[in-house]
Simulated assay, not measured.
Amino acid sequence: MQEVFVGQEDEIPEGGRKVVVAGGIEIGVFRVDGQLQAWRNECPHQGGPVCQGKMMKGVEERLDADRRSLGIHYKEGSLHVVCPWHGYEFDLRTGRHAGLDRIRLAAHKVTVRQGAVFVSVNA
Score class of each variant (00 low, 15 high):
Met1Ile: 03
Met1Ser: 11
Met1Trp: 06
Met1Asp: 12
Gln2Pro: 05
Gln2Arg: 13
Val4Ser: 03
Val4Glu: 11
Phe5Asn: 13
Gly7Tyr: 05
Gly7Ala: 13
Glu9His: 11
Glu9Asp: 14
Glu9Ser: 12
Glu11Gln: 14
Gly15Met: 05
Gly15Phe: 03
Gly16Glu: 07
Arg17Lys: 12
Arg17Gln: 08
Val19Met: 06
Val20Lys: 06
Val20Met: 12
Val20Tyr: 09
Val21Glu: 14
Ala22His: 01
Ala22Arg: 02
Gly23Asn: 06
Gly23Val: 02
Gly24Pro: 01
Ile25Gly: 02
Ile25Leu: 09
Glu26Leu: 04
Ile27His: 07
Gly28Asp: 05
Val29Arg: 05
Val29Phe: 05
Val29Trp: 04
Val29Tyr: 04
Phe30Ser: 01
Arg31Val: 02
Arg31Cys: 00
Val32Pro: 00
Val32Ala: 10
Gly34Arg: 09
Gly34Glu: 10
Gln35Asp: 15
Gln35Ser: 13
Gln37Leu: 04
Gln37Asn: 14
Ala38Phe: 07
Trp39Ser: 02
Glu42Lys: 12
Glu42Asn: 15
Cys43Gln: 05
Cys43Arg: 03
His45Asn: 10
Gly47Leu: 01
Gly48Ile: 02
Gly48Cys: 08
Pro49Cys: 08
Pro49His: 03
Val50Pro: 01
Cys51Asp: 04
Gly53Arg: 06
Lys54Gln: 15
Met55Leu: 05
Met56Ile: 14
Lys57Pro: 04
Glu60Leu: 05
Glu60Phe: 00
Glu61Thr: 15
Glu61Gly: 10
Asp64Trp: 04
Asp64Met: 06
Asp64Arg: 04
Ala65Phe: 10
Ala65Gly: 10
Ala65Thr: 09
Ala65Arg: 11
Ala65Tyr: 10
Ala65Ser: 12
Asp66Ala: 15
Asp66Val: 00
Asp66Pro: 01
Arg67Trp: 14
Arg67Leu: 15
Arg68Ser: 11
Arg68His: 14
Leu70Asn: 12
Leu70Phe: 00
Gly71Val: 09
Gly71Asp: 15
Ile72Val: 15
Tyr74Thr: 11
Gly77Trp: 04
Leu79Trp: 01
Leu79Arg: 03
His80Arg: 09
Pro84Val: 08
Pro84Ile: 06
Pro84Lys: 08
Trp85Thr: 03
His86Glu: 11
His86Ala: 08
Glu89Lys: 06
Asp91Gly: 08
Leu92Tyr: 07
Arg93Ile: 03
Thr94Asp: 12
Thr94Glu: 14
Gly95Trp: 00
Gly95Asn: 06
Arg96Pro: 02
Arg96Glu: 15
His97Cys: 10
Ala98Trp: 07
Ala98Glu: 10
Gly99Ile: 02
Leu100Glu: 13
Asp101Ser: 12
Arg102Asn: 13
Ile103Cys: 03
His108Trp: 05
His108Gln: 08
Lys109Ile: 02
Val110His: 01
Thr111His: 11
Thr111Ser: 13
Thr111Glu: 13
Arg113Gly: 07
Arg113Trp: 11
Gly115Cys: 09
Ala116His: 10
Val117Ala: 08
Phe118Arg: 07
Val119Gln: 00
Ser120Cys: 07
Val121Cys: 09
Val121Ala: 09
Asn122Phe: 09
Ala123Val: 07
